[in-house]
Every structure is written in structure tokens, then in C-alpha cells.
Design a binder for these strands. Structure first.
Lengths: 131, 131
DNA sequence: TTAAATTCCTACCAGTTTAGTAGGGATACT
DNA sequence: AGTATCCCTACTAAACTGGTAGGAATTTAA
């Protein structure tokens, strides 16, 4: 998603290129694509000259959006979302803590957009050039 | 650890009793004990009339202490602690985010002590009595 | 029209982690 | 001496994670 953000506005990008830049296999990346499409964070153009593009501006995609799609959840224990999994949920103090923790994680991740990453990236490489 | 905190000041507590109250098996709890002892969060008294006690006051044990001991770490990716696991660490933007996230999680968990849980517990049961 | 480029879908696999169970030994109180 | 209790090591089964593999579908372009 970071590579797609870097490439935003320049047409579709190949998985092959993303794989090279991020040092991952195309086969593996293919695995991540379907949920991202379903969530309408990216869209695909098939066939020759095809590839993937962000479906929204990098300013409009937060890390929380991405991680929720790829990891499924942010809570440290399932009982946060599904109290029924444990008979103790109603009065469980630990569960209150897990809920609090999920809120913190959520808030932190929602505070970063892809554009923030792109900006950080350019700051970083610029700094290295100066040294 | 919550049960030990509730029992703090009343001598050693049996794993059997903790197991009953938390609806866990003694065999499983035995598994959690060694790291907690090594970290000097609890101590054991062997033999008849033995059991486990907190090694410090509940006000002096944070959830971060406990979770670091039982889960080993708080980071979402190993590269946060051990940059060498990935050649991209030096310039990886994502890693910066994971580091930030670990800090947030750490801070949140360090903000709760066992005494806080005990207090919440009493508040909660008191409330239910009123209804 | 055909070949090449590329996404898309489903299945499989292997290592690690998690949540336990099990047996028996060591220690200390009464 | 006997019993309660912790202690240590090994084993196991299910789920999760990260990844490979094969081949079908679609689109562009020569």
C-alpha cells in the first residue's frame, strides 16, 4: 500500500514492481490483494498494461483501514468484540482492559494516513542525501 | 495475578483456588508460574499450607510488567526490537510505525496497576448490588 | 487474430505459536 | 511418616502465519 501511495497518480502499478521494491514475492502479494479490493482500498486493471492503483487518495487511507482489512481485527482478545465467547465477559475486569487497549491501538493507527508515510519517506531520504 | 491481588495480605493462595475462580485448569496455571517467579512478581511457598503470593504490593505491579513476562514482548513486529532481522530496517517507514505503536501499547499497559483492577472490580460489584 | 501481459482463483504446505494435558519428583508442614 | 503443594520436563492438538503452486480469465497490442 505504501508503494501504491508513492505511485499514486501515475497509473496502475505492477505487483512485480511492488514485489521487487519491498523484497517480497509476487505470489505472496497476490494473497493480500483480494481483501484490499473487497474493501475498496485498491482497484485492479487486468491484462497487459494493467496493475493496481489506490482507490482513494493517500490522504484518505489510514493505517487502521489497511490493518483492519489485512489482519481482521485489532483487539488482543476475541472477547472484546464477541463477549459470548466467554461466560465471564459480563464482569471480567481484564476484558475492560483489552477493550481500552484496542481503543488505543485503533486511535494510534487511525492517526496515520498513507500520505504521512510518503511524507516521512521523503523526509528520510532527503536527510540521508545531506549526510 | 488479579486473584493474587485480590488476596494480597491474606497469605499464600492455592493454584487450585485461582483455577476455580478464573475457570482455568491448575495444569495450565502451573505453566504460567515459572516466568512470573523468575521476574519476581510472585513467590511460592511449598508444601502443606503453601501457595503463591504477590512479591510486591498491587500498586507496584503494572499490566505491562505482567504481559512482558507472560507474552515476552509488546511489539507488532520483531524488527522493532531486532532490526537485524530485516535488511530494510534502516530506511523502513513501516518499522517506524510499529515502533510508535509499541510505545502506545506500552504506555497504556504501564498505566494500569493490579490495584486499579482490584478497585474497578469492587466498583463493578458494588454497582450491581445497587441495581 | 493471436500472443503476451497481467490479474484472479483455489488449493496446498510447513513452520510456529497457543493452549493446553500428563507424569512424576521435590519440598515442607503437621 | 504422611500429605499437601509446588516444580520440572515432556508431549500434543488445533490454529495461525507466511508462503508456494498451477492454471484460468481478461485485456492490450502487434
Amino acid at each position: 500500500m505504501f508503494q501504491l501511495a508513492l505511485n499514486y497518480g501515475n497509473g496502475p502499478m505492477l505487483l512485480k514492481d511492488i514485489a521487487e521494491k519491498e523484497n517480497l514475492s509476487v505470489r505472496y502479494l497476490e494473497h493480500l490483494v483480494p481483501p484490499l479490493k473487497t474493501a475498496r482500498l485498491i482497484y485492479a486493471t487486468r491484462g497487459a498494461r494493467g496493475g493496481y492503483s489506490l482507490a482513494k487518495a493517500p490522504t484518505d487511507i489510514t493505517l487502521k483501514d489497511i490493518i483492519r482489512v489485512l489482519e481482521g481485527h485489532l483487539y488482543p482478545s476475541e472477547c472484546v468484540e464477541t463477549p459470548e465467547v466467554c461466560s465471564r465477559s459480563r464482569f471480567c475486569i481484564t476484558r475492560d482492559i483489552w477493550t481500552k487497549l484496542e481503543e488505543t491501538i485503533s486511535t494510534t493507527l487511525a492517526g496515520f494516513t498513507l500520505q504521512d508515510l510518503v511524507d516521512k519517506y521523503y523526509n528520510k531520504t532527503h536527510h540521508e542525501e545531506l549526510q
